[in-house]
Design a protein around this nucleic acid. Structure first.
Lengths: 331, 331
DNA sequence: AACTTCCGAGAAAACGATTACCAGGACACG
DNA sequence: CGTGTCCTGGTAATCGTTTTCTCGGAAGTT
């Protein structure tokens, strides 16, 4: 690898001058600028990032830690983050925590170690890397889920009222016993959606029963089991509110296996819209979260904080909207 | 940020000793080890990554540059890469080139600059960052698509014969005029799939006509337009081979808008399986590519090359398999 | 012409780790 | 007891940049 020294030597100037030219300082004679540029070109010189970052004490990189790359909700967030970051001259590195607190911790640790400029995190909720974050001075933003015990910038979606609305929607459409499949205990998004569901039931005068609720990981496999369990109970639910789109696929597989049809046999509303949701059989009613916006808002917040570390912490809450399709239409 | 000096001072030893302890060298007195460890713990010391990487002249990070984070095919690859890399002690940073040669180039450039240990790239095909790569000495592996003019490790899928097989499948199922929607000119995967399609037609004695072929970006919007165009021709195709899963969604939307049903009205086979493919209306026939394996094989190849830079270049070709569902079943 | 001002460019000091090298002490052996 | 060996741990060089100083010369002012 060629270094700045070799470029300086070939151009017949000092390394300081090379550095100045390459960083666009305007105090260099145009003759020298030309010499440096051609020398750098000829040698295929490319500055050493780690050295530069060490000296500058900062790295133009944002870390985005999400819990599932295969979930379109999170990839949409990542697009939002990337668009904003990119236009501000930052690169984004995407890390996939798999909803595993250990992996999350380890990624936070790596990010801190590499001295990234900032971190966007959708926390698993449990212990997670939050202590690490809060005791370091690195700017960060929590996305989708609040960070336990830590006050920091946060971008949330009001899924509680969305869940409530979705539940009422099911009842209004004529379903009598809506059930709920949500995420693990302690995960804020899971709790919120469950809470919204319970409120929705109460609002329409239904007795809420934990017997119609199941919890599982935010994965298809768990949702499949949960759906099977619920359908096998003595008084099975006649409709379901499902806490994310990956789980919804699991539920639909289960229905298909049993020859049940979503909508007609079991009403279904799931969180997260996806490009394929309207093309399923039947088209899936969803609570569409503004995923892309979560990304852009979060990234902007992070950039602002990087620019001014003593800003007040803010929490932005975006709202979701129900898109009713055939899966919540009985008969 | 606390530095190794402060740790050394607090522990009453030299920085060299701190470094030795923290890197697990065994030549240090256990008394000192304990002192260093507690000092580091108390100060919340975390080594400065850039400094370490600068000194060590390497970074335990692999860059994975893919063309679309929202495409499940690529996210599956990324899981494969990550699993292998992680268990070998490497982090993976995921970069999203958006199938834009400029973005790709820029990401390759950043990766080189940051001196990552290796690069996994699914090239856009056109000029792209290949010159950058080949003239640097950084190990790299091309995934899914070969790198133009460059010999290097490559992991491919034999989509030519898969496309041929899929085309024959359509004809065998009774469709008479299969059309094809493929990717942009010059993109190897697009050309291969088109070529396979043409061969398939010839194999069953059909005259191949470019009039049944459309090209567009690997996006839903382009595919929608392409499908509309094809359906509006005087002699429209009665079935379609579509070059990836994102495009397939666009095509299905178009069919739905026109009140046409995949299978009964227009046969449909698309590349890439996805969790939702079997749940669409109708279930989508696909050519399933071993995406996760592309990732694991590619990552392993890259690690091998990092370990031994003078290995011979290899090209691994995996095979795809047709999964016939209802969308390729007439009537 | 003498003095100040300013500006461009080089020399050298950081940045924070790792590691080659060296010094000093303990121990063993003749 | 003297000398050689080994082992531990400190000193300082090093990685490749950026940036602060500093200095020399040109330009401007009186």
């Amino acid at each position: 690898m060629t270094t700045i020294n070799e470029v300086a030597e070939r151009a017949g100037v000092s390394t300081a001058t090379v550095s100045r030219v390459l960083n666009g300082k305007d105090t260099v004679d145009s003759e020298l600028v030309a010499r440096v540029l051609t020398a750098a070109e000829e040698l295929g010189y490319r500055p050493n990032g780690p050295a530069r970052n060490l000296r500058r004490q900062k790295t133009p990189v944002l870390a985005l830690i999400i819990s599932d790359v295969e979930n379109p909700f999170f990839t949409a967030i990542s697009r939002g983050v990337e668009d904003v970051a990119h236009s501000a001259g930052y690169s984004v590195v995407l890390c996939n925590s798999d909803d595993d607190p250990d992996k999350e911790r380890s990624y936070v640790s790596v990010a801190l170690q590499e001295r990234v400029a900032g971190i966007l995190l959708s926390p698993t909720g449990r212990t997670s890397g939050s202590e690490l974050l809060s005791c370091s001075r690195i700017p960060f933003v929590a996305l989708d889920r609040p960070l336990p015990d830590t006050t920091g910038d946060t971008v949330l979606v009001d899924t509680r009222s969305a869940a409530e609305q979705a539940t009422r929607h099911l009842v209004e459409r004529g379903y009598r016993r809506p059930g709920c499949i949500t995420g693990p205990r302690g995960v804020p998004t899971a709790e919120e959606r469950l809470d919204g569901y319970l409120r929705g039931l109460r609002a329409v005068g239904q007795h809420d029963s934990e017997r119609l609720v199941r919890r599982c990981e935010f994965r298809a496999a768990g949702a499949r089991r949960a759906a099977q369990e619920l359908l096998d109970t003595e008084q099975p639910p006649d409709s379901l509110l499902v806490a994310n789109n990956v789980m919804a696929l699991g539920v639909m597989e289960t229905l298909a296996e049993r020859g049940l049809r979503a909508g007609g046999d079991v009403g279904l509303v799931a969180f997260d819209d996806a490009p394929w949701a309207g093309l399923l059989d039947p088209p899936l009613s969803v609570v569409a979260q503004p995923a892309y916006d979560i990304g852009t808002v979060g990234a902007q917040l992070l950039l602002d904080r990087i620019g001014d570390s003593r800003r007040r912490n803010t929490t932005t809450t975006l709202s979701a909207r129900l898109i009713a399709r055939a899966s919540s239409h009985p008969g």
